[in-house]
């Protein structure tokens, strides 16, 4: 649905050229929530602005549904932009307008009649759950409510794509979750393609289907969220993944009890394996005792993943058999320490 081909953007300063986006090629499918993660300065904000030509690309091409955005100008660009909604970190609402008037703003731009506008505004207010706040001014709303107005406004003209520029970065964790739930809901209900940029890994984990990791203007890693989380390849990706797994899953944090016997094993599960009673199976089938040290399971849009630290006690052969059994079940078992 969205194709980025060799996209670059360089900014010229007095002394040097800064390449904010460096030869990025991505393909985003219809109806998916695609996340782009990176630290500030990685170029993700510039990248998302290239998608609706708020920034003009130095080279490369962006096409949305076969239409080349990079070559559009004037009225055709403005029409195309009406089909690309955008949500901002700082909401960017007009404080001089009420909630309803803010949501009606893109409809005014699209020259809809007052009657159509009112009808659509009411639908959107219901969709984002702001019933009763239509006549409030943004200054009277909480951050989460402001972002709901921002989302409603972005959806007003029935866009094909929703761009989210750090949409939850200015919100507290609880409000972040409610906004993410709203985005997931919209994605499912309207089949809307969402491109989301963030520096928070848990945002990616919670709602994205696929993710691209950016560093110094380049996409260093890309793939389904579950895969990137479980098997991060690049240093940068590992750093991000650790953001939400530390300290629970970091082996170095575990204090091994020297007195204990047996092997400490880290188990990593794929998708739905996390829901199977494999521990009780191990205990029943093999002559071993299992002691759970610690563990964590995280949910993503396409299944859960997690890891568990256990201590297996028993004879050497039985422990090896148990581990072989787990590996057959497609659970990664890594022996951390042998007593």
């Amino acid at each position: 649905m969205i194709q980025l081909k060799g996209l670059s953007k360089a900014f010229q300063t007095k002394t040097q050229t800064v390449t904010a986006v460096d030869n990025v090629s991505l393909s985003i499918d219809e109806g998916e929530i695609f996340g782009i993660i990176g630290y500030s300065g990685a170029g993700k904000s510039t990248l998302v602005r290239l998608l609706n030509k708020l920034e003009t690309a130095t080279s490369g091409e962006v096409t949305i549904e076969g239409e080349s955005i990079t070559s559009l100008k004037g009225q055709s660009l403005r029409s195309a932009r009406q089909e690309i909604g955008m949500v901002f970190q700082h909401f960017n609402l007009l404080w001089s307008r009420t909630v309803a008037e803010n949501i009606a703003f893109p409809l005014e731009i699209a020259k809809q009649s007052k009657q159509e506008r009112n009808k659509r505004v009411q639908e959107l207010v219901n969709l984002v759950g702001l019933e009763g706040r239509e006549d409030s001014y943004p200054s009277q709303l909480s951050g989460g409510q402001k972002q709901r107005v921002g989302i409603a406004r972005a959806l007003a003209n029935n866009p094909k794509v929703l761009l989210c520029d750090e949409a939850t970065s200015a919100l507290d964790p609880k409000t972040t979750d409610s906004i993410l739930a709203l985005l997931t809901d919209i994605n499912k209900k309207l089949g809307l393609t969402i491109v989301l940029i963030t520096h928070e890994m848990h945002v990616i984990r919670k709602i994205c289907h696929r993710v691209a990791v950016m560093e110094n203007g380049r996409v260093v890693e890309e793939g389904p969220v579950l895969q990137v989380f479980r098997k991060p390849q690049e240093h940068m990706t590992k750093e991000f993944v650790r953001q939400i797994t530390e300290p629970e899953e970091d082996a170095s944090e575990i204090v091994f009890n020297e007195e204990e016997t047996g092997a400490v094993v880290q188990l990593k599960f794929l998708e739905n394996k996390a829901e199977q009673p494999f521990i009780s199976k191990v205990i029943r089938q093999f002559d071993v005792d299992v002691n759970i040290i610690q563990g964590k399971i995280s949910q993503t849009q396409r299944g859960s993943y997690g890891s568990l630290f256990i201590r297996i006690k028993g004879s050497h052969e039985e422990i090896e058999k148990a581990l072989d059994y787990l590996r057959e079940e497609e659970i990664e078992a890594e022996v951390m320490e042998h007593a």
């Binding site: 708020l54 007009l94 699209a110």
Partner: peptide, 10 residues
């Protein structure tokens, strides 16, 4: 940002 948002709306 508000001006940018308006531009993004076309």
């Amino acid at each position: 940002g508000v001006i940018e948002a308006s531009q993004a709306m076309g």
